[in-house]
């Protein structure tokens, strides 16, 4: 914790391009804005953590109440493609930063443009997925055993016939009733509520990232980005990679497990 402070300046002397612009060196030799952004990112990490924790603790409760089973509705293929798109965009993002550091004007524009495009593709995929989920239905089946024990299960409508036959077999003598089909929205089940809120907030962050990158791209098109202020690209990039990072967690915890 307590290392010498004033000696570090030469060591890390503002490589973010601020040396030449005349900003005084900082105590840690780190750029103020970058330090602030990293602090903000760790705060954001806890924001998503609270949402993920909410999803995870509600999951068993959702199932016990006869809510839809996530695996019936969350297709792995589409999500894998979305994960691929975001990973790809992280690559183009880091290439844009690399280009900025080397003052490669064509590269900056090309890779920033590519990142924005991939971000928009991700958002398009998410809109498609939300739309698809919203139009699907599930049925809550209530199984009352002869001894009075009650079990509930949420079954996707497209599985209903097959599953009902199986349930009859597994629960001989039980009465089985089913609810009217319900759409998978954010109000019809805990799965819907927690899933849409979590992925919706992630999508919002992607959208904000796209806006931020677009601003940087406009600056680049005007020739206002160079190796002297590559920090502008780096900052947007850090935020963008963080959003990708959140998707890495969501992909595993929500879609795969």
């Amino acid at each position: 914790m307590a290392q010498a402070v004033a000696h570090d300046h030469g060591e890390h002397g503002a490589p973010g391009g601020h040396g030449p612009t005349g900003h005084p060196p900082t105590s840690l030799g780190l750029n103020n804005r970058k330090l602030g952004l990293w602090t903000f990112i760790s705060s954001e990490a806890l924001f998503f953590t609270a949402l993920v924790a909410t999803y995870l603790v509600m999951k068993p409760r959702n199932l016990a109440l006869g809510g839809p089973r996530p695996e019936d509705f969350l297709g792995i293929t589409l999500t894998a493609i979305l994960a691929f798109i975001l990973l790809m965009s992280s690559l183009t993002m880091v290439l844009a930063h690399h280009a900025a550091e080397h003052n490669d004007q064509r590269g900056i524009r090309l890779w920033l443009g590519a990142t924005i495009l991939l971000g928009l593709m991700f958002l398009g995929g998410q809109v498609y997925e939300f739309n698809k989920l919203w139009s699907e239905h599930f049925v809550t089946v209530t199984i009352t055993e002869p001894d009075g024990k009650i079990v509930r299960e949420g079954i996707a409508e497209h599985h209903l016939d097959a599953e009902l036959a199986e349930l009859q077999e597994h629960h001989p003598g039980a009465t089985i009733t089913q609810s009217a089909p319900k759409a998978v929205t954010w109000t019809t089940s805990l799965f819907g509520s927690t899933f849409f809120v979590l992925t919706g907030f992630h999508g919002t962050h992607v959208a904000i990232g796209v806006v931020w990158l677009t601003v940087v791209l406009i600056m680049a098109l005007r020739g206002a980005i160079s190796s002297r202020n590559s920090l502008t690209v780096e900052m947007a990039g850090l935020y963008w990679h963080f959003v990708d990072l959140v998707w890495v967690a969501i992909f595993t915890l929500i879609y795969l497990i």
Binding site: W38, T39, S42, A45, L46, T49, V94, L238, L245
Partner: peptide, 30 residues
């Protein structure tokens, strides 16, 4: 992603410490 794309491997330890503190509390919470 964090080490290479976000450059933590090549950047100041302070950034790593900041991120690790938040991440540690996050994992603990979950």
């Amino acid at each position: 992603v964090v080490m290479f794309y976000m450059h933590l491997r090549f950047d100041s330890r302070w950034f790593t410490a900041l991120f690790a503190a938040g991440f540690g509390i996050a994992v603990f919470m979950v």
